[in-house]
């Protein structure tokens, strides 16, 4: 328990250790701690900013989506209207065409039937003439009665 040189030795070693700590231990450790604190603060701020941006983007996208939906409905309506128009146009066209064809066919038929009637009439007349000729050959001269016969043909 005597006081001796150990005291001075301890004082000197303490000065050396404190100097070393002051020079090489404390500054880098504090620097690391403070740098990390700054990084964490920055990270949190960046995170918050990102969240705000995300919220804004969500709202924006909702607006764009609503617009698109409206436009799509409009386009659909337009398309429906146009389709109806086309269909009704087609119907009208078809009807007109049918009517035209029908009338064409009718006139054709009429012409054909008229032609057939004329032919028939001629044939009947011929037949009648042939028949009459055969009868008259036995009884009368052809030439004497020709005017009467032609008159008759016309009346038939």
């Amino acid at each position: 328990m005597d006081i001796n040189l150990t005291l001075i030795g301890q004082s000197i070693s303490m000065i050396l250790f404190v100097w070393f700590c002051m020079k090489f231990i404390w500054p880098p450790l504090m620097e690391a701690i403070e740098e990390r604190q700054a990084q964490i603060a920055d990270g949190l701020a960046a995170g918050e900013q990102g969240q705000q941006k995300l919220d804004k983007a969500n709202i924006d996208s909702q607006v764009i989506l609503d617009d698109a939906r409206k436009q799509a409905t409009g386009i659909l309506d337009q398309a429906n209207a146009r389709a109806n128009e086309i269909v009704s146009d087609g119907k009208q066209d078809g009807q007109q065409e049918t009517e035209r064809q029908l009338s064409l066919a009718k006139t054709d038929i009429e012409q054909e039937s008229n032609k057939a009637r004329d032919e028939l009439r001629e044939q009947v007349a011929q037949l009648a003439i042939v028949t009459a000729e055969k009868i008259l050959k036995r009884e009368i001269d052809m030439k004497a009665h020709e005017d009467i016969l032609s008159k008759l043909t016309k009346e038939l």
Binding site: F17, F20, C21, F24, I25, W26, P27, P28, L29, E31, A32, I33, E35, R36, Q39
Partner: peptide, 14 residues
């Protein structure tokens, strides 16, 4: 000194 010196030498903020 060695314990803290090692930590200080390898100190990385990340």
């Amino acid at each position: 000194v060695i314990m803290f010196g090692l930590a200080a030498k390898k100190a990385s903020p990340e």
